[in-house]
Amino acid sequence: MQNLCTVAASWVVGGSGILNSMLANAAPRPDAAFLAGDADTAMMEVLGTREATASDQIKLDAPLQAENGAVVPIEVSTILPSPESIVVVVPNNPTPLLSVIETTPRTGNYLRMRIKMAGTDNVMVYVKSGGQWYVTSQEVRVAIGGCGG
């Protein structure tokens, strides 16, 4: 199914270059980690370690208070040299792993997204640079949780 979709998509835009580049970069996606119910399992799978150095070279912009946990905007920028991967985790969410970003030398310095938060919690952002994980976090106070159920 995946191949069919990729081929169809590539046909629509009429470029085989796009198809090739997408197949070439088929790094395995940590599917299980995205569905893991506890942060520790997800983190071990994605980071492969529990060790991360707190760094002020990652800047995380998130609201101090969010009225609606269903939409919490976050902004991440880093001046760490050649970031390889960026991981966003909210430890107490039903599925704590939110995003794993695989970068190339042309990307990874700036990212913005909107996330769901089940309640007041820390937003943790891990950045891999030079084979080392660095982390920064910020607490967001959530008035109404946004994960349903």
Binding site: G15, F34, T104, N109, M113, R114, I115
Partner: peptide, 26 residues
Amino acid sequence: VNGEHVGTLNLGPGVSADPYLSFDIA
């Protein structure tokens, strides 16, 4: 960009409905 892969954003179900993402490319 011009057929060259520059980045993948893997998302989990915890990303808000109607994902709105920004990503810098040099």
